[in-house]
Amino acid sequence: MRNYWYVFLIAFRLGCTSFGGPAAHIGYFRQEYVVKRKWLDEQTYASLVALANFLPGPASSQVGIAIGTLRAGIGGGFFAWLGFTLPSVFLLTVFAFLINRHGFEQASWIQSLKLVAVAVVAQAVFDMSKKLAPDRLRQSIVLAVAAFVLVLEQPFIQIIALIISGMIGYFAYQKEHNDFVAVTFSLSKRTGIIAFGLFFILLLILPILNASTSSELLHLFDGMYRTGSLVFGGGHVVLPLLEQEVAINKDVFLAGYALTQAMPGPLFTFASYVGTVMYGIGGAVIATTGIFLPAFLLIIGGLSFWNILQRKHAVRIALLGVNAGVVGILLAALYDPIFTDTIKSDVDIVLVLFYFMLFQVWKVAPWKIILLALLIGLFIL
């Protein structure tokens, strides 16, 4: 239980401070789990990011679940998810009760915190590229994947880019001696089969149950579960899918989505806001559970077979290309949507460079930089 509490507290702090969307979360996680705590190495971390990108659902949350599972088993994965998700769920539930429509998401301190996210992702790209793309071929993969993802803005493009990167790695590094140390997850193949089985059973059974009953909460759970099962490409894709599933005032819906962009933590917690607007606290619990449950089942299933796959030579050399592709995806995200949505003036650029210097050169702890950014946003911007 002590390990669970430890995992929860670290994830909770990340949930309170990780502004900027999924790509920024990957940067924050890397800083906390790889650089600071050394729970896993750079290659393993990039491989987990790649695995999460292959699965539907919130990639950053799935990476957090994977790291929690590595540290303390399935229970650790659950508490890592709970800690990271809880702050945003709480805030959005409160806002749903207040129905705040006063442009809170445009507050200057929110903008300052988003600028920290730009610096975090830039630092992650800079450091990961040095370790995961040390030669010209992998550097070329990074740039090619970034261009590919930016030009072809479709949800499945990231998966295609990673598959191509893996194929290049497989054929180019046949004679490469890979010193990658496989990380073992305490999950059996049976666990994986059960997780995947539950995922597909619920995906098939819930619509049938929903059609045969008039329960509004079951209808909400079914809609959220289907949404969480079908979303590729990050939390931004949730908006059009949920808009088809729920019947609430459009202005209230869009106001909540705007507020979600301003919150730390995963964008999927928008479901908590929708559930609260529709059915109060019970709706928030049902909606949040429904939309995140597929991600949890899929990542646990994936990790159960990851133990076997990562030990195969063919997979390990393919991962040399895949990991470079992950850096390319982060590089693309650094530009769009992070840079394009966040940088609005020359002052913003100056602050990003300042925060990057604190991270990269002076190695200031992230929580101190976030506190400084908050003060700059409140009293200077």
Rank of each mutant, 00 (worst) to 15 (best):
C16F: 08
G20V: 10
P22R: 09
P22G: 11
I26C: 09
Q31D: 13
Y33I: 15
V34S: 12
W39P: 11
L48W: 14
V49I: 15
P56I: 10
A59T: 14
G64I: 14
I67G: 10
A72F: 07
I74L: 12
G75L: 04
G77Q: 03
F84K: 07
L91K: 00
L98N: 01
R101P: 02
R101I: 06
E105I: 11
Q106N: 14
K114Y: 09
L115A: 09
A119H: 11
V121E: 02
F126S: 05
D127Y: 15
S129K: 15
K130V: 00
A133K: 07
R138H: 07
Q139I: 06
L152I: 08
E153Q: 14
F156H: 13
F156D: 00
I160R: 03
A161F: 02
M167L: 13
A182E: 06
A182H: 05
V183T: 02
F185R: 00
G197F: 00
G197E: 00
L202M: 06
L203P: 01
L204K: 05
S214C: 01
M224Q: 06
R226D: 00
S229M: 02
F232R: 03
G233C: 04
G233D: 03
G235K: 00
G235I: 04
L242R: 04
A247N: 15
K250G: 01
K250Y: 12
F253V: 05
G256M: 09
L259G: 12
M263T: 09
M263N: 04
M263H: 02
P264M: 05
G265Y: 05
L267E: 01
F270V: 07
Y273W: 08
T289Q: 07
F292S: 14
F292L: 15
L297R: 08
R311V: 04
K312R: 15
H313L: 15
H313G: 15
G321S: 13
V322F: 12
G325H: 10
G328S: 09
I329L: 15
A332M: 09
L334T: 08
L334S: 13
T342G: 12
V347P: 03
I349W: 07
V352I: 05
F356R: 00
V361S: 08
I369S: 02
L381R: 14
